[in-house]
Amino acid sequence: MRGGRILIVAGEPSGDLHAAGVVTELLRRAPSLTIEGIGGDRMRQAGVRLHVHAGDLAVVGLVEVAARLPAIWRAYRGMTRYLREQRPDLVILVDFPDFNLRLARAASRLGIPVVYFIGPQVWAWRAGRIRLIARYVRRLLVIFPFEEEFYRERGVEALYVGHPILDRSLSFLSTGEARRRLELDGEAPVLGLLPGSRVGELTRHLPILLRTAKQLMTEHSDLRVMIAAADGLPLDLIGACLKQEGVSARVTQGRSCEVMAASDLILVASGTATLEAAVIGTPMVIVYRLAFLSWLLGHMLIRVPYIGMVNLVARRRVAPELIQFDATPKRIADEARPLLLSAEFRNRMRRELQQIRDRLGPPGASGRAAEAILECMRSGVPEEMAVQRG
């Protein structure tokens, strides 16, 4: 394909990671494409010209978003202006639904086809959004096998491409190799702490996880604690938290998968990291906390029994989940203790995690998504979409 202009929007760290893989595959197949939009450092490295950095927008929680509203509104106005003035051939939206569904409507009204990669989890909460997806999205590329049928039954042109997490060679890193890279000598157990990829998640989760680790260290004097900080998180904030809690731990940044592979057990904030751990095969305890009002609103809207992605994919409790008021150091330690003490318990969870990994499908999701996107560009806007817009 010669030429062509794409607007792509990914407003969160996981979206930046997955979108970067798709952009790489797009430019490998169509090097002359111009791709611009909103994303993070990985998308920039993949070849996207950023108009807004995703780090200025990413937030979790219905209440927490209020502090970012001015920046989000400026970004939205900038993207709608870009649509009117530049008229790209296609818009790719990645997750980030509250922002992206509005942008989908704006693009659709201008006659610009929209491909949505990693769509909103309407099967879990706020099901009314599916009407917007059916009306404004040309093609929805889904990453969980059950999603294709779910969306198609509700009038959405959905295509299952697989999970992009499998495009990274996570499962090939052994515990021994990961510990060698991290300079962890000996056989003493390792506990990994993954508090989340956003500053808000870090401040809510890290103190609780450190208190849990401190409790477990009194019971296991040889326990080694590793903190996996996501790229962009302030290390001075982590250092201050360590000092305040009086816990000895090593901190790494941008090496989450190595920490997972090196650990006997991880305490992890709910999110993409839980699926990464499943692919690697690391036993875990899942935690999550929000501001109270955000939790209360979400609690009323969520329609699924779990929030951890590994449990949602398995459709049963594989890893313990401790959410909001249940996420206390004592409760977390009570769930972690048997897994630390018993190799049999850890191996049982590893076997269940392998089943989850198998459900995610084969590698190559980024390439399949790129092919579907290019097909959409070649085919243009279908007649039925034009009728809907009219």
Score class of each variant (00 low, 15 high):
R2T: 14
I6Y: 12
E12G: 05
E12L: 12
G15S: 05
A19K: 04
T24H: 08
S32D: 14
T34R: 14
G39V: 10
Q45F: 02
V48N: 11
R49K: 14
R49M: 02
H51D: 11
A54F: 04
A58P: 09
V60E: 13
G61L: 05
V63E: 09
V65S: 08
A67W: 14
R68E: 01
G78A: 09
G78Q: 10
T80E: 07
R81C: 07
R84N: 09
V94R: 07
F96L: 03
L103G: 02
Y116M: 08
Y116H: 10
F117K: 02
P120R: 03
W125I: 12
A127I: 11
R129H: 07
R131I: 03
R135S: 00
Y136H: 15
V137T: 09
R138L: 13
R139K: 14
V142R: 02
P145M: 06
P145D: 14
P145G: 07
F150M: 02
Y151V: 04
E153K: 13
A158N: 13
Y160N: 00
V161H: 01
H163G: 08
P164Y: 13
L166N: 02
S174M: 04
G176E: 03
E177K: 06
L182R: 10
L191Y: 09
G192M: 06
G192C: 10
L193H: 04
L194G: 00
T203Y: 12
H205Y: 10
I208G: 01
T212M: 07
A213I: 06
T218Q: 14
H220T: 14
H220V: 05
H220P: 06
S221R: 15
D222Q: 13
D222M: 05
V225W: 13
L233H: 07
L242H: 12
L242K: 04
E245I: 07
G246A: 04
R255C: 04
S256E: 05
A261W: 11
A262R: 10
L265H: 05
L275K: 06
V279Q: 01
I280H: 08
G281V: 02
T282F: 06
F292H: 12
S294P: 00
S294I: 03
W295F: 15
L297H: 04
I302M: 09
V304C: 10
I307M: 02
M309E: 06
L312M: 15
R315D: 14
R317I: 00
V318M: 03
F325P: 00
A327L: 10
T328A: 04
P329G: 01
L340C: 11
L341K: 09
L341V: 00
L353M: 12
L360M: 13
G364K: 05
C376I: 15
C376T: 15
M377H: 12
M377A: 12
R378E: 15
P382R: 04
Q388P: 04
R389V: 09
G390V: 00
